[in-house]
């Protein structure tokens, strides 16, 4: 009987440990694969390009800001918010292991920042190119 009790308690401890785990973390490559799945629905899709991603990242697209306005031209270094001066941690996973590991966070910031920089949402192609670029930048 006491053994069963001990087992039960152990099971409860393990389960409560699982319950407080944060949302499933992903790797940057898993995030890129998910973007690729939606990009592939376009018949003209020919894969992602880090070079194109870099150009996209540094262009103002006819408006005031580029991605680099806040994240700087070196995504492996820390940036600064163009309006408030608040420090923004490095965007490249090579410099900041937290980046590109939370799909909801990635979506949230693409939505906001594409709206600020381009005045519209980004296409899966554009997102994938930018992620490919971020994965190539090193400290």
């Amino acid at each position: 009987m006491s053994r069963i009790n001990t087992l039960l308690i152990l099971l409860l401890v393990v389960m409560s440990g699982l319950a407080i785990q944060p949302a499933l973390a992903e790797t940057p490559n898993q995030i890129l694969s998910a973007v690729e799945s939606s990009a592939k629905t376009a018949p003209e899709f020919r894969g992602f390009s880090a070079t194109r991603g870099e150009q996209f990242f540094k262009s103002t697209h006819g408006n005031d800001w580029s991605c680099a306005s806040c994240h700087t031209e070196d995504p492996a270094g820390s940036g600064k918010h163009a309006k408030t001066n608040k420090v923004i941690k490095a965007l490249a996973p090579s410099a900041n292991a937290e980046r590109l590991t939370d799909p909801a966070k990635v979506e949230k910031w693409f939505k906001r920042n594409c709206n600020d920089v381009l005045g519209r949402v980004c296409t899966p192609q554009e997102k994938g190119d930018v992620i490919a670029y971020l994965l190539t930048t090193r400290k």
């Binding site: 906001r112 920042n113 709206n115 600020d116």
Partner: peptide, 9 residues
Amino acid sequence: HFGTDASLE
């Protein structure tokens, strides 16, 4: 939000 998109779920 003061000129930027700060939308939340």
